[in-house]
Amino acid sequence: MIQLRAISRDYEVGNRPVHALSHLDLSIARGEYFSIMGPSGSGKSTLLNIIGCLDRPTAGSYMLDGREVAHLGENDLTLVRRHKIGFIFQSFHLVPRLTAAGNVELPMVFAGIEKGERSDRADRALEAVGLSQRADHRPEQLSGGERQRVAVARAIVMGPSILLADEPTGNLDSESGGEIVRLIEKMNSDGLTLLVVTHDPAIGSRAGSQIRLADGYTSNK
């Protein structure tokens, strides 16, 4: 479902061009469990942002579910993100003034889903991550592992086809980190395509398919 062909992403830092990604090819099938590993600065976050339609490649082709999205306009990319992609971040990115349920509802609020349906779907998503008891708690009242589970619930609530996790355990102790990994792996086994970016080989090596990035190039194993 994801097909990258000759993807490059160049930045300008000062007047110096930086090649974050160079001529990268990648295919990910539906339902696959995929990991991208590499040291910091290897371009793995850039790759994740491009796959997540937060960023556009400088050159190359990106087919998502049979549609070329590499050069879509901003509004179209927004819609792709809204309906197809769920993000999980290292630092959770929960809105501190909203409850767990409020955070999970957030994408649905702006997608124009009605209040009744919103809270039903948020309840189910929180149940899926085992946080039904905590729906009314604000992020500051939750542990790190619980916060990341709220973020997982938010990522799946719009029914995406891909779950993108950027260092999902980076801010967690190993126990709750392990719980999060098992949680998203379970979602993968239920059919969700899962893409994990990590510098931690212990996590990345659990994936069915793996690539390793160095300086913008793949070094496939």
Partner: peptide, 16 residues
């Protein structure tokens, strides 16, 4: 700023 980034990531448009 981070909240705005998050909103964009979950599919909130610029005009929203």
């Amino acid at each position: 700023t981070r909240e705005i980034g998050l909103l964009k990531a979950v599919g909130v448009s610029s005009s929203q």
